[in-house]
């Protein structure tokens, strides 16, 4: 491993300046659970400066407002998210992913913002964050901007973040009545594993019918995949097995997986069907309980 410099700015401005000046040779770091592993594996040979995000107040924000929704700083570690009663009550879908990323030790450092910026096709938190209508708040040399999460990842480990920009926080609109969400992945083991396929979904019910729904898939395309057509197709339909079957088939059709050591194209497409049906059922059950 080559020499790496480390900087720990205390403001968004300072972080943006550091990253902007360093150009492509700097990397922001929150928990470091991906970037440190990549550095050790020589996967980032051009990086010689790590800019720590953990001491910037805005990146540690965790504010739950019943009207405005949830603002989640990009460096908030998973354990703080699943340890928060208000989030647990309002966003059980976020709890699903925050409590299964890595293991207990990893969850002490890893953040959902970091999981998003790492932009792995298998990123466990991304599908449900897309399903929940999340928005990324980005600061950079030329000001602030917001990007819907379904547009955030642009390729394998590539995002909309430009030179000098940092992800400051994630925003999720306040849940409405009769809303439920879930993240479900398939892994060969029971823990400490990487998704062969994953589904994040959010539904709003209206008298036993699906009023609206959002479904996103992971590990079956170069980026997490928001499948808008599923929501369009099942809105207005009864929340029953037939509707779930339709959603599952659409997820299977939308998936564009590859064959690799974790699974085949055929198997992953099949999993998209199974997981979409199972995950939507949990989201529906949660909506009924909410």
């Amino acid at each position: 491993m080559h020499w790496i410099d480390y900087a720990s700015p205390h403001s968004v401005r300072e972080a943006v300046d550091l990253l902007n000046e360093a150009g492509g040779s700097a990397r922001p770091m929150a928990g470091g659970t991906d970037v440190l592993v990549q550095l050790r594996a020589n996967a980032l040979p051009d990086v010689n400066l790590l800019v720590d995000m953990k001491n910037i107040p805005e990146l540690n924000e965790m504010t739950m407002d019943p009207e405005v929704g949830l603002t989640l700083g990009a460096a908030v570690p998973c354990y703080k998210i699943y340890g928060n009663k208000a989030i647990e009550h309002a966003f059980p879908g976020l709890i699903d992913c925050a409590s299964l990323i890595g293991g207990t030790q990893i969850q002490g450092r890893a953040s959902l913002g970091g999981n998003l910026c790492n932009a792995a096709p298998s990123g466990d938190s991304i599908p449900v964050m897309i399903a929940l209508g999340g928005v990324a708040r980005i600061s950079g040399p030329s000001g602030d901007r917001e990007v819907p999460l379904e547009d955030f990842c642009t390729g394998v480990r590539r995002t909309v973040i430009q030179q000098g920009e940092i992800l400051v926080s994630l925003h999720f609109p306040a849940p409405v009545a009769n809303q439920g969400a879930n993240y479900m992945r398939f892994i060969p083991r029971n823990e400490m594993d990487i998704a062969v396929a994953g589904v994040g979904c959010s539904v709003v019910l209206d008298n036993g019918n699906i009023k609206s729904a959002r479904v996103a898939l992971s590990s079956v395309a170069p980026t997490p995949l928001y499948v808008k057509e599923i929501g369009d197709a099942i809105a207005g339909k009864p929340a029953n097995e037939e509707t779930l079957k339709l959603a599952g088939q659409m997820a299977k059709d939308a998936a564009k997986p590859i064959t690799d050591m974790r699974g085949t194209i055929e198997y992953r497409k099949h999993l998209c069907d199974v997981l979409t049906r199972r995950s939507l059922q949990i989201a529906i059950d949660r909506a009924k309980e909410s």
């Binding site: 060969p188 823990e191 400490m192 594993d193 050591m261």
Partner: peptide, 16 residues
Amino acid sequence: MANTSLLDYRMPTSLD
């Protein structure tokens, strides 16, 4: 060998 880490060379964990 594609899976040269303990992430993808799947030995059982205590949960399995």
